[in-house]
Amino acid sequence: MGYTKDQLLEHLKELQIDFSCYDHPVALTVEAQAKYVGHLGGGLAKNLFLKDKKHRFYIVSTLAGTTVDLKVLSQRLGLGKGGLRMASEEALQEILQVPLGSVTPFALINDSARNVSLLLDQGFKAQNFCIFHPLTNDASISVTACDLDKFLISIGRNPSYVDLKVANPTVGKDQPPDLAAVVPSGTIELPDSFAKADAVQYPSTKHAPVDHKTLTGTEAVKKSNHAPGVKVKPQGAAHSSSSNSNVNKFVEEILDKMSTVVLPAVRDKIGKETVQQHGEQLGPVISDKARERLRLDLESLTVMFKNTVYTQGFVAGSQADPVPKCK
């Protein structure tokens, strides 16, 4: 059982950290969060939960306007260009022990996150205060960078501030990766029931601030900001243990619809003569081959859309309510 918001706030009080906490409706993205606390000023935080191929996990916490290029960051960590990807929702709940849309440096207070590495945007230091979720996405907490450091030191962490705007890192024989020292030394083994979900290979993406225009198809994959058609469950809804099977079912439905288009197209294209020569099974064989090649890509994209909801996804807008302070 992870720490609760109240337990976290009590810990901050014990450290004599000056903070303000505001209750608000559930906010799964930094854009939604801005509706409720953006008027307070300060630096609103965007948080990514990532993993590498060796099952090492990272929280990358940046200012909302900072662009994070995963390929560049991966190189700077010494992981190669494709070494980082989004961690699964199951890993989020098992390791950070926070709800969807609640990734935060404060989650490192949980013992299950002891091997998670934290990279902080150096831009936080220039802000009067920074705003994060306090282990739940129906509240926001504001603290100074100095007090955030105080919290991290209290749980045995050495704060690592990074310039995430580096676009072309120099890595070579005489120039080792500049962030290699922050790569976790220990791996985290997930339960077998989560292994399949966490093993999905995600396409490399560049995470940039949302520009609020509707994106579809390939553009949506490249931007990873909006996922049209994805329905977001409100906080408190039970997480289905069959999330993977739902993804598989969705992909199968797409492939089935594709087959109904491919088969007639194959017959029309190659003509009756070829069909008679090679047998009536030619169309289904071609369709099956296409299904095999597309299935993995479709599964990867579908799971990627699902997981980017808590970092760069979309939320149906609602009118901002007055923001009460936490009790």
Rank of each mutant, 00 (worst) to 15 (best):
M1Q: 12
T4W: 03
L9W: 00
S20N: 14
C21Y: 03
P25C: 04
V26H: 11
L28M: 11
E31S: 08
G41Q: 08
G42D: 01
L44E: 03
L50M: 07
K54S: 12
R56G: 05
F57I: 08
F57K: 05
T62A: 13
L63A: 06
T67L: 07
V68W: 02
V68K: 00
D69R: 10
L70S: 05
R76T: 06
K81W: 10
A87W: 01
S88L: 02
E89I: 06
E90S: 11
L92P: 00
Q93R: 15
V98Y: 00
V103M: 04
T104E: 05
L108A: 01
I109A: 08
I109D: 08
N110E: 00
Q122S: 12
F124G: 03
F124Y: 14
K125N: 06
A126P: 00
Q127V: 01
I131C: 03
P134E: 02
L135T: 03
N137P: 14
A139P: 02
I141V: 14
C146M: 10
D149Y: 04
K150W: 03
L152M: 05
I153N: 11
G156W: 01
N158M: 11
S160R: 15
Y161F: 15
A167K: 14
P169Y: 02
P176N: 02
V183F: 06
L190W: 05
D192Q: 14
S193M: 11
A197H: 10
H207F: 12
H207D: 13
H212F: 08
H212L: 07
T216M: 07
E219V: 08
V221T: 14
S224V: 13
S224F: 09
A227W: 05
K231Y: 06
Q235L: 11
A237H: 14
S242K: 14
S242Q: 12
S242T: 14
N244I: 05
N248R: 12
E253W: 11
V262Q: 05
V262K: 02
V266P: 07
V266A: 08
D268P: 02
G271S: 06
G271V: 07
K272S: 10
Q277D: 06
H278L: 11
G279Q: 01
V285H: 09
I286T: 01
S287L: 00
D288I: 03
R295E: 15
L296C: 09
D297V: 11
L298H: 10
F305C: 06
K306Q: 15
N307A: 12
V309Y: 06
Y310V: 04
G317N: 14
Q319G: 09
P322E: 08
K327T: 11
